[in-house]
Design a binder for these strands. Structure first.
Lengths: 373, 373
DNA sequence: GATAATTACTGTAACGATACAGGAGATTTG
DNA sequence: CAAATCTCCTGTATCGTTACAGTAATTATC
């Protein structure tokens, strides 16, 4: 039953300097209690103390009631929750963090060289969508990838500034993964590793993409194929190469070397290298691009060499946004849904923080080529 | 002079349950002091207490020494700073935040519908670059722009979760600006307002861009011009229209209505509308686009209508990334440097937090057309 | 040479939350 | 009916930091 809490304000202190009004309360018995500040027009932010005063309960009780602890009576919980909802109570993050060490922060560590076409946008909003409705905030921790990528990781670990970390540009033998694993920091990687550590990840099956890309090209009669790859040290470089090679031998095509540039190179360099390649004696008739940004420069380059897409050469490309079809509908474009990746990664870190087994937090998305292509 | 602090550990308590070792210290006199925990292998994070113990000073003294307070001796400060640097002391954010209310957080409020081509990426890394080396962290607070854009602002204000806020997609009469102003929250807007509130902002001079765009088109003999505008309620829509109209009357051109789509419309809609426009009886010979993403669809649309860029029609477009020239070199593209905008915005909020006058924190970037264009 | 002022440092309380160790009152047990 | 048990609630200490109100020792003042 809801006992009316018979409390009574017996003393009001007005502190003009501090512009606050405090008061004492007499409870049912005759012990006094500090009632806290009288919020002027509910302007001040409510705390547990506010609810404790309003309900006539102790601060501890309120705290435990809101946590649904087993040693609090059912109708007390109800009452506390009601009041908390009414006054819009939200736990003070600094208080929680100081006392418990829980930051309620997910750190997204991004290289400033992430891909041009909306990668950051998509992954950020994918993660955000999952974090909405949880107490977690998303903090962006950037690093110049040329510099030491360990710096932001060490910072987060040393200062304990996040409960979970999401990293991208994963390498097969990634020291960031090793360090976070060692220190027990929950994390998820965009891209797999190959170092004997079982950890949460989300990845796109670039091996399948590359292999299937070769298949589509061969199906169109293209047998001399070139591929533009990511930087050498990233995990997905290896997967791409593997799929590419498998595709070549599986479908009987040959590789035209094209390794003077990577998908990270300046667009001008990619353009020039593609023109040179396509104008040369051993010009390929099939091209594979692992990233949408560089595809645009490649198209310009091959056209500068006098070639025509669909006639002289076919091009399969991955993309993050649905842009390529507007540029040249002839491009065989395959979407990598980075927003979905962000969502998976966020789900994985949250679950990892919650203690889920890492092997249950690994997802691999399959490339989806258009039906006939 | 650096007096050697003659302290002595006189009692060690080993608490096996909590796995910690604490100890008492006898100082030069004979008062005892709690020496805190003996960090096992410097694994635990150092706090003021650690430094206090190591230097033999009080916690308060250490705190004030690190703040360079005037009532602390010069060599004491030196000594404290040395130790702090040695052990890699970093203030606990939760402690500071709880005590002072200072969050050391800048919130970037982004609509999930920000432009495709790298807007988020650029602004985030621009802001980050300025925040690097400061104690500030960047928190991304997203909102579905269809929903109430006030929600994230109210959240930040009610929970005091940031020291400063950066917003984009500013409107001439923006309730977010009014609210933050009223509550005294430092902020900077990407885009100006027109509501009698002087506040920090950064903006791109879209009025000049649109006016100059008309001039370039007229200089190429184009007199029938259409423009694709941003959504109606944004500040820069008004600026664009103003510049556009001024340009038309100034250079003697006429406007071909093109308002069935905005730069926010789906690319398919933009494509179709452009094709219809260009295939119609009143097809313009000059086009102006306020955003790079939609320009790509427009180009596809006008080519689908059988028109050729540079021959039948010229196109002036803004862009965030240097992509358009690879798509059609004929496009007269003008870069809006969003990374620089992020830097300006971050500088502005930080200065605003520091108490700088808002009128000194307003920047307007001029469009830079290529030399001859 | 007593008092005042200055210098350099320190202890206590508080920010808001939670872990922990009670503790009062009702209910069951033998 | 005393003891044990169970229910439900509460006070205290603590996380790391800083504001504030001291205090002891030295130096300046008259």
């Amino acid at each position: 039953m809801l006992t009316p809490s018979c409390l009574q304000i017996v003393q009001i202190r007005i502190d003009e300097e501090k512009e606050r009004t405090t008061f004492m309360v007499r409870l049912g018995g005759n012990e006094m209690r500090d009632g806290g500040d009288l919020k002027d027009g509910a302007r001040e932010r409510p705390t547990l103390k506010t609810i404790a005063f309003m309900t006539g309960l102790g601060i501890t009780t309120v705290s435990r009631a809101l946590k649904d602890a087993p040693d609090i009576g059912a109708d007390t919980k109800e009452r506390v929750r009601l009041v908390a909802r009414q006054i819009g109570y939200q736990p003070n993050r600094a208080g929680v963090r100081l006392r418990t060490g829980k930051t309620n922060v997910i750190a997204l560590v991004l290289s400033i060289e992430e891909e041009l076409m909306g990668f950051t946008n998509h992954i950020v909003f994918g993660i955000s969508e999952v974090l909405t409705g949880t107490p977690y905030h998303l903090v962006i921790t950037p690093h110049a990838s040329a510099r030491d990528p360990m710096v932001p990781i060490r910072y987060i670990l040393d200062t304990g500034s996040a409960d979970g970390v999401i990293i991208s540009r994963t390498e097969p033998n990634d020291p960031r993964v090793a360090l976070m694993e060692e220190r027990g920091m929950p994390f998820a990687t965009h891209g797999r590793t190959n170092m004997g550590i079982v950890h949460p990840y989300h990845d796109y099956d670039n091996e399948t993409f590359a292999r299937e890309a070769v298949r589509r090209l061969v199906a169109r009669g293209r047998k001399n194929i070139a591929i533009i790859l990511p930087e050498g040290h990233l995990s997905y470089t290896g997967h791409s190469i593997k799929g590419y090679r498998d595709g070549l031998s599986l479908h009987g095509a040959r590789s035209v070397p094209f390794d003077s540039v990577t998908v990270e190179s300046p667009l001008t360099a990619i353009h020039d290298a593609t023109r040179a390649l396509m104008a040369g004696p051993d010009a390929p008739d099939g091209l594979i691009s692992m990233a949408g940004g560089c595809t645009i420069a490649m198209v310009a380059g091959l056209e500068a060499a006098g070639k025509k897409l669909g006639r002289d050469v076919d091009l399969v490309s991955k993309q993050n946004s649905d842009l390529l079809k507007w540029i040249r509908p002839e491009i065989i474009a395959v979407n990598e849904d980075i927003r979905a990746a962000g969502m998976e990664l966020a789900r994985a870190v949250l679950a990892s923080i919650g203690g889920a087994a890492p092997e249950s937090l690994q997802t691999l998305y399959q490339p989806s080529f258009a039906e006939d292509a």
